[in-house]
Design a protein around this nucleic acid. Sequence first.
DNA 1: TCTCCGATTAGAC
DNA 2: CTAACGGTCTAATCGGAGA
Length: 425
Amino acid sequence: MNTAPRSIALVDCNNFYCSCERVFRPDLETTPVLVLSNNDGAVVARSNETKALGVKMGEPWFKVKELAKKHGIVAFSSNYALYACLSNRVMQMLSDFSPVQEVYSIDESFLDLTGFTDVTERAYRIRKTVLQNTGITVCVGIASSKTLAKLANHVAKKHPNSRGVFDFNRLSVRQVDSVLSNLEIGEVWGIGRKLNASLNHDGIETVLQLRDADAPRLRARYDVVMAKTIRELRGEPCIELEEVAPAKQQIVCSRSFGQCVTDIDDLQEALTHFMGNAAGKLRAQKSVASMVQVFILTDRFRAEDPQYCPSVSLPLITATADTLTLCSWAAAGLRSIFKAGFRYKKAGVILSEFGPEGMGQADLFAPRDEPDRLALMATLDGLNARFGRGTVKVSGERPSGRWKMTSDRKSPAYTTNWDEIARCR
DNA sequence: TCTCCGATTAGAC
DNA sequence: CTAACGGTCTAATCGGAGA
């Protein structure tokens, strides 16, 4: 009988986007830094110094701007190419420390360290290796379930004397209770704002209280996810590591515009651009889609403007991943919902109802995609992979770019674009 | 009554 | 100088429509 607990590690990069920006700007090591969402809308990452100044996650940039100026906070537009590149390097490095890895998000990996005799040492080596090779600091939380590993990571981040590693498995039962009694349920993976308030209302405030709550009663009041969370808090692993990411069921590409757009041709141009992006992702996972959805939105924050947020669903007879075909469906969709006289702020496309590429779907007599069209798409994907996204794209005639998002504070593409590296001194 | 669907909600990052 | 609040994705649940 094997009674040894699992050792599941959650490795999480600290202030990831900010850390990425600093990798190429060591002069900003002690300067407060923040990173903005697409369209420079809201704060999505803060360095420790910025957090200390009271800047909140998700705060709109226009509300922070004054404070930023006053304290010399350096703000960056988000540079996803840079973050993805550094993420890949970090994840690759982490894979050396365990045969079982789940890349959970752009800055987090679960690693199964069960069976290693030197789990804590290994965790410190992970930290050291990633820091030395990329300049990015990570924290490691370890426990017998993913939910507890996430909590352990939170403790490692918060308590400097942990030196970045915290392992529940090395604690006595009493010590675990003590730690859990000092954590609020909002820190638990899966407990968001609504559930937090609702549980508080039932008198459950600490993680210890949640763990020891009457499970059947909570199961009745909440859902199966809550039941799993409680079991995981008790140390019983019931959420397994997913080593291979399952294929997406839906691919969305949407953006807010830098300025409002009134012209159907501008919306068309934007949708063509978004569809190029979405179809590329679709082909990357070797799927074809048989549903296209298109939506356009006015600015909900301008209460004085008339609002109009239509969308349309277009079921396709023939599933496809061909950008040109998908773009013409998107264009048809747009024509069917567009009304002049509104100020549109956002638009997007959604692909869904996926099937495997090359399978022609259930209807054997349905028309197939032209083979030379497939070859064209393969060539396009190849060029974009080799020379960077956007090297080759479908042309919406008369490109105006009036729909483009604001991104005034973007760092150069250090790791992906040679020209921009050269420009940066 | 059962099931399937779309829309809505909640959560994560 | 103004006005200014992100993008993707999954799972659960619920109510209505159709079998």
